[in-house]
Design a protein around this nucleic acid. Sequence first.
RNA 1: GCAGGGGUGGCAGAGCCUGGUCAAAUGCGACGGGCUUAGGACCCGUUUCCUUUAGCGGAUGCGAGAGUUCGAAUCUCUCCCCCUGCACCA
Length: 884
Amino acid sequence: MDIKKSMDVSRKEDNTQFLSYLRDVEKKWQKAWSDAKVFEAELDNKKQKYFITVPYPYPTGPLHIGHGRSYTVGDVHARYERMQGKNVLFPMAFHITGSPIESISNRLKEGDVEFTNLYKSYVSIYLSDQEKIDNTLKSFANPIEVANFFASNICRDFDALGLSIDWRHKFTTGDALYNSFVSWQFRKLKEKGYITTGSYPILYAVKEKQAVGEDDIAGGDELAIEIKEHAAFEAHVSKDIDLLCTCPADIASGEPIKITINPEATYVIASFNQKKLITSEQSVEKLANQGKNLKVTERLLGKEILKRFPTASCAQYNELKLADGQVNSDVASGVMLETTPAKSKDLQNEKNAALIPDFLFYDIAAEKLPVKTRAGSKVIVAVVDGQWFIDYSIKEWKSVAREALSETKVTPERYRKQFNDAFDWLAKRPCARERGIGTRLPFDPKWIIEPLSDSTAYMAFYVVSHKLKTAGAHPEKLVDQFWDYVFLGRGSLKNVETLTGLESKTIESMRTDFLYWYPVDERHTAVAHINNHLSFFIFTHAALFPKELWPKSIALNNLVIRDGTKMSKSKGNVIPLFDISEKYSSDLFRLFIISAGELDSVLDWNAAGIDNMASRLQRFKDVFEQANSFHNEGTLDKKDALLAEWFASTIEMNIQTAKVLYDSYKYRDAIQKALFDNLNCIETYLKYSKEKDRAVVNNALEKIVLGISPVVPHLAEELWRNTGREGFISLMRWPEESAYNKLLIEGFEAVNRSIEDINKITKIMKGSIAKKVTIIIADDWKYELVARLNMQKPKSIGEALSTNANIIGEHKEEASEIVKIFTRIGGETHVPERNIEKLMTSALVELIKDHTNMNEVIVLDAVETNSDKKFKALPGKPAIIISE
RNA sequence: GCAGGGGUGGCAGAGCCUGGUCAAAUGCGACGGGCUUAGGACCCGUUUCCUUUAGCGGAUGCGAGAGUUCGAAUCUCUCCCCCUGCACCA
């Protein structure tokens, strides 16, 4: 009984044992890579460079497997390019700009219990000691500590995933050196006139006199808060007093129907621009913050308005109505104008007579009003003056950006349209805020550049970041002349040397490095970034750099869901990236991410799929090792030699196909070929070849392990070394192409067709005890006929028959059958060579037995038999006789 | 509303650009069988319907409808439904 139990355990643990094996292998090779600095890329003029970037993460919490997808795919790409002999630079940094990190710090300081527990759970992913957890949480009072803690753990996660990153380039967007770079970037944009200033509506806490973000608002993430524009109209109620009516701007072009006010709410009569207006009491403060100061002269309830102005002449409107609480006096002016459905576009030019020109009333639209900050003070919309914008609508900029886009490869190509649309739509974008972490606007330091605007050209900074650090550059000395020199080749080296205090050879090497690594060869990220980040990325590059430094290629992937539902913090179904390397395995994760779906399809993470992938990967490893372990005993007979050649050919073909697929970003199909198809091929070979060819197997295994290494680098590294090979597979070249024998592959396919046919027949014959199958290879003339048909492409059956009468001879009936089948419109038919078909079939009789329930297989040439069935035999599809 | 993407078999998901070899890859599930004392794991087979103790047959079929074509899951048009983004959130 005990034995049974222990057997149970060992069987059940099969999977977990394999996973733990993988984890050990992963840790071992990650250490080896890091010790040998294999991913540190240096300028090398003998090698073609390849600069790939994936957007840096925002360290406000642990990354989850959804984030893991983009980084993994980026890494597969990086590794593949490295195998093509390219000098690959794959750097990484951290984005800490803006308010989220501060806001986390603040909320923890405020002692929000739910929030504190959330962060406790995040920290506990990485730490187990309770005291350490508490201390870490305490340290979060300083926002930088939040960023530091998560950033360092994300580094760990990335390493554990096997990402081939050159960490020397790491920085955060809060670093002074980075700020200097961004300042330069913004001054450049300003010089070009791409940065403008103006007024802009923002969410604003009245009491604190401060702009607020979504994080500052109570329930901000659920309220779906929006700033809405309301058009204003005036409606006379007496000779000198007007109602200030408002209506959402998007329906303002409709025909006005009626005006509604709330009888219980307080309204005011106030003077504005030599007019007297009636508006809600709440609106006065809002308008004051939108640059419209009203002087209140009198207060009155809504219901008093009609009493006071019974003869209200609202000529344009049918009705002035008092509504019971139907009108929220806290929305815009509290005097609602209803309209008929909006007019069609061509009618919209007809402005409503009562519309007050240039009077827009901004207010908040949210699921629940009023909107308050977490501290409880009221949030309104204020219009700030002096807001800085990046003006993407400037014509010359747009057109040069369009040009840059047209020269950028977009994968999948169908997303190009979305880019084009985004480019059309991009206009002025506010680029700075009054608070948060980041770079101050160089020409107006009270503003801080916002997160999306400071991350559009940082790939250039990557190239020099490590050298600036090691050279001990002083951020305040990195004046524009320095950046101009390094990135644009302007100015004199001497001058820059004096200004920065850096050695001239350091400066010169940064310039050389930049020219070597730039442009960005590949930007890999999620589809969601097209409308903003990726578009800004192209715009900024088009603005700053000459054409030859514009981005080469953008590749996109979709998101990851779990068990059919979106992952979200609130659902609690998020899997942190940490769990992958600790509880599953990085190679398994990588394999799943790559093979479970094409890049632009949504990927569903589910336990069944993972388990399945684990057992397939294990099978691969077992079969690989088994193939590697046999020794030659005898000599190869003709059949074995044939099978060996078939095996070598199939592997070679699969690897060549895989390369084409990798090249076109079809990683899923590529790994299908390189791993799973090859696995089947090895298994078939091992099973059905009596004597194996050591050299052939060795060669095939080498190709296979190279072919899978971009996706499962750790296991590949281990198998590489375990099979007596030297060096890191991560630095090996993709296998050289060699010729392969296609005829043998076709021959094998013919055998598979025979198996299918045998099974079809036995199904029909169910109940029969027949166990013997005779396979008859078609007559020679049929092969010749098919070959001719492929060349001749005859237009009709008659033509085909008459032109080939000499080889058809008296077999007219059979021939017309063949012609019918093999002259389908649309192209050639592939048939194996007759000799090979015959040899392959007899070499694989065991395979046929295994896949059918036959126990005797006889292969005959048509000339060796008189059976009637032999007339049914076709090239590539022999006649089959099943008998007892 | 505007813009983008999509609707395929019990489920998930390829195929669609470049129409025929697509009753439609692959995985999961289900069913049957092998191996097992048994379960799990593994292996083999079946998984729209009809016909057939002999394979290369027929029908229906890829959101709905219409069209182009010798031929449509694939091309065109109309309709219905679903998802995503819409700016200061990163």
